[in-house]
Design a protein around this nucleic acid. Structure first.
Lengths: 238, 238
DNA sequence: TCAAAAGTGTTCGATATACACCCATGC
DNA sequence: GCATGGGTGTATATCGAACACTTTTGA
C-alpha cells in the first residue's frame, strides 16, 4: 500500500503572452538545442530544484528565457494526467534533457506577459525562442497544446480581475486603437470605437499624452500611458 | 546539476464547503486517527498514487471521506513552498502516516461542495470529520490555514463563473432567504431583500414550488428549486 | 395581540449598446 | 483629391442600489 504512493518529478511550464500585429502571441522554444529548425517547439519550462518553490522556478525559467528578473506571472493549473509524458518521443527527450528513468512528471502551468518588442536575452538551455501567433501554434509535445488552450481562458479571467496586466503587453506609450485591438484579441470580439474611447476616458489610470504618432500616412493617433499609482489607489478603494 | 532537480511527493488537499446556520463551514478531519479529541484538525487529503491524476486523487479523498462518488470539485492552486512541511511536528506525522523520509511535499488544493445535512459515510483513514464554521477554523498543520484563506477567494470566483454550484450547498428545496444568506456568507456583504427577490425572479433556472414551510412560528416561506436543464441551456446561449 | 420573519414596487443613477459622420495626414 | 485610419455625441435599454410597509403564522 505505502509503496503505491508516487514520488514524482515536478516541472513548471510558462505560457508567455505577447501582443503584436493585433494578435496574441506565445513565446515558444525549440525543444532540441542542437537542431536549428523550428519544427519542434514547446512551452518553456523546467523541473524544479530542491528547495525551490514552484513560483520561484517559474521566475527562474522566465529569467533565463528573457533576461527579465521579476516578470509578472500567475499560476493557473497543475497538469498531472499519468500519461501526459507517455509519448515515447517525449520520454526520450526527458531522458536526454534531464536524467534517465523519469517515471512520472507533473507540471504546474503559469501565465506570464511580455512586451513583444522587448529585446530578450536568452541564457536558457534552449537555443532560441520564437513568438508564435496563437492562431498558428503547432502541435507540441506533452500536453502543451492543452495548457495553451486553457491559458486563453485564464488570461481573460486575469484581465477581468486585474486590468493592469494589459499594459504589460503594450508599449509604454500606446494608442487607443492598440488597446482596443488588445481587448479584441483577448476576448475575441469586436468593440465599438466610440464606446471604447468613452470607456478609456473614464478610466482614470489611463491618461492621454500630448504626443502623437509620427510618419503615419493618416491622421496621427494620440498616445496614452498607464498610471500605476492611480491604478493602485483605485484598487484599495474597492 | 542534474541531481539538484527534485523528486517530490505530491498530495491533494480538499477544502469542502458546507452551509448551515447562515454560515459557511469547512469539513475538517482529525489528524491522528487514534486519538479522540478534536484539537488536531486538518484538511482532508492524501498523497497521490502511482498512475493517478491529481483530480482523481481528490475524488478518491472525497469519496473516502463522504461516500459520495462524483463530488463537484475544482482545482485551485498548487502549494509548494519548500518549508511548507518543515515543522517537526508535521514531519513526524508524515513519517508515521505515510513513510519515513519524505523529503519534500507539494500539494494541490481543491475546492469542493457538500450539502451539510447529508449523511456522510467515512471510510477514510481519518477517524472522524467535523464541519467547522469558517469563523472558527483552528490553527492547522502545514499551510492548511493559508489554503483555507485562499479558498474563500476562490469560491467567489467560482460562483461568479458557475452560479449552479450554489445549489450544491443548499437543500434540494430551499427558501429565498436561505439562498440570500448563502450569498451573504460567500460574499460577506448584505443583500437587500426586495432586490434579491427580484433577482431570483428573473433567474429562469430557479423556479418556485407551491410548497411552503411547515411548523414555523411565522409566515411560512415558499420553497424554490434549481432547474439544471434550464441552467445548462442558458449557458450554451452565451 | 404580539413577535417573528416573509413578501412586495418604484425611483434613480450608472453602465452598456447601438449607431454615422468629419478630421488629419501622406501620397 | 483621395485613401487611410483617427476621433467624436446622443439616445435607449439594462442593471444594480436605495428605500418602508403589509402579510402570515404560531404562541
Amino acid at each position: 500500500m505505502k509503496s503505491s504512493f508516487i514520488h514524482t518529478y515536478v516541472s513548471v511550464d510558462c505560457v508567455v503572452f505577447g501582443f503584436d500585429n493585433n494578435q496574441l502571441h506565445i513565446l515558444l522554444v525549440q525543444r532540441n538545442a542542437g537542431e536549428n529548425d523550428f519544427n519542434d517547439l514547446k512551452l518553456p519550462g523546467s523541473l524544479i530544484f530542491n528547495e525551490e518553490d514552484v513560483d520561484d522556478a517559474a521566475h527562474r525559467v522566465l529569467y533565463e528565457l528573457t533576461g527579465i528578473k521579476k516578470m509578472t506571472l500567475k499560476q493557473f493549473r497543475c497538469f498531472a494526467a499519468p500519461d501526459r509524458a507517455g509519448n515515447p518521443e517525449d520520454m526520450k527527450w526527458l531522458d536526454q534533457a534531464y536524467q534517465p528513468n523519469i517515471n512520472r512528471l507533473i507540471t504546474v502551468a503559469y501565465l506570464s506577459l511580455c512586451k513583444i518588442d522587448r529585446k530578450l536575452i536568452n541564457i536558457s538551455k534552449y537555443r532560441s525562442s520564437k513568438w508564435t501567433p496563437v492562431s498558428q501554434i503547432p502541435k507540441m509535445p506533452f500536453d502543451h497544446n492543452k495548457i495553451v488552450e486553457e491559458s486563453l481562458n485564464e488570461i481573460r479571467n486575469w484581465v477581468k480581475n486585474e486590468p493592469a496586466i494589459l499594459f504589460e503587453l503594450l508599449p509604454v506609450k500606446f494608442t487607443a486603437t492598440e488597446l482596443r485591438f488588445l481587448y479584441e484579441a483577448i476576448y475575441n470580439r469586436k468593440h465599438d470605437v466610440r464606446n471604447f474611447h468613452k470607456k478609456i476616458a473614464q478610466m482614470e489610470y489611463i491618461y492621454p499624452l500630448d504626443e502623437k504618432q509620427e510618419n503615419v500616412k493618416h491622421r496621427a493617433a494620440r498616445y496614452y500611458k498607464f498610471d500605476k499609482i492611480v491604478y493602485n489607489k483605485r484598487k484599495v478603494g474597492i
